[in-house]
Design a protein around this nucleic acid. Sequence first.
RNA 1: GGCGGGGUAGCCAAGUGGUAAGGCACGGCUCUGCAAAAGCUGCAUUCGUCGGUUCGAUUCCGACCCUCGCCUCCA
Length: 471
Amino acid sequence: MALKLFNTLSRSIEEFVPLDPDSKQVGMYCCGPTVYDSAHIGNFRTFVFADLVRRYLEFKGYRTRFVMNITDVEDKIIGRVREAKIPLREYTGKYEAAFFEDLKNLGCLPPHDTPHATEFIPEIIALVEKLITRGLAYKAADSSVYFSIDKYRGCGCVYGQLLKLNFDEMRTGERVKSDDYSKESVADFALWKARVPEDGDVFWPSPWGEGRPGWHIECSAMSMKLLGPSFDLHLGGEDLIFPHHEDEIAQSEGAGLQPSGQPFVKHWMHGAHLLVEGRKMSKSLGNYYVLHDLTSKGFTGREIRFLLLSAHYRETFNFTVKGLEGAQTSLARIDECLAKLRELAGNSQAPPDSTLVEAFSRALDEDLNVAGAWGVVFDWVRDTNRHLAENSLTPVQAAAALAAWNRVDSVLGVGAAPETEVPTELTALLDQRQAARKARDFKRADVIREELKAKGWVIEDTPKGARLKRL
RNA sequence: GGCGGGGUAGCCAAGUGGUAAGGCACGGCUCUGCAAAAGCUGCAUUCGUCGGUUCGAUUCCGACCCUCGCCUCCA
């Protein structure tokens, strides 16, 4: 079955074919975090989405090289560094470490490369020089270097590949900064920003004087260096379509490094934004969640991941605490089923049962219909539970079912529920309750049950005996 | 003003020109000393409104209403 993905370039669903169809090698790039603060749940929707793409490509037999950049120099960071009076790297390092911790918590596989903007200054300068040489960029009176949209379009290149742009109808104004007065045209964007006093220690030497990279250029420089001038997949949040990705295309194709006829990026994918509790996330509404806000409420990374993966990536998704509670119950349903399968399978081994895997894959082949894929999983859980209840499953069949789940979970990445060790004193209490029940001393049995509950453990009386579960 | 999404049960969310997946919540049942947990099971004559095309539309077309996003450094 062929994988089909929506491509922002064509605004339609296309079969995914890598630039080199025979190699099974896929280069993918996702615009990563700007490490000036903790990443929020909306950011993570995009990164979990990117992780899904990467995992599914690998499931389909592609070898991926996944690059996610870390933007560690930018206006907000410079502002914070100045306030905090600490070196740039010290400041960004803290948030970067937190970011990777969160990413891990959410079950995202680490990207193969996580390049930093500040470590690619020579490449960035070289790219800007190339653009100046080709006549597409100019040094302005303020010593910054800008990319000229007019010149670019004059060469027959298309500015506005990812969205329809109508320059006459565009509202210019509010967000055009006053220090951009030296641009030849409002549409032009900075490749290199000349040093200003507020930058403090944050600057690098360049042929145009001291300064720092513009926003878009880092992604062009890093992606082309690590994946080549033309690569397969570029992902990001939908807000990056314009101007960031459009400008990336302009710079990268403007530099003319691609083999003739090949685009900078073959396939662009964008994840939709998140609503939180039905509203756009904002600090003043109190619905601005960073991962820690959620984990401190007792939700786990896998539950958050599950919820983030419960809707199609191109749909706005309403992220709610109620939804997280539902995610908790849903995952528990899967966990229960898996636990029973494991018990039955014992040491048996078997190849994966293809029914689940194929139906799952059919769903994801359709532009990553992850909701449909979960539907397949839950149908499978119900069928499995039925068989389990009927005792109609052999250990080998159980092993095949587990193997199938592992295959599916290589994409979903929710893994298994973390094992909770039951403290021995609690097991002792449980034994006492069992003894009391046997003696038909139900009063005492219920007292022990309450006691355990007060300690945060619930007793599960199953036909195979009692066991303890964390509340 | 320009461009682009979306409106499917109490909530979240798939999907299809042929009569509505899945999850949560809720009800019933099984199990149990009673519970809980777990499992099974039930739960949209209907897909924003009004028209049109069609043997047949939630799915295609048109109009309208509502809602959300982007329009120069926000995932």
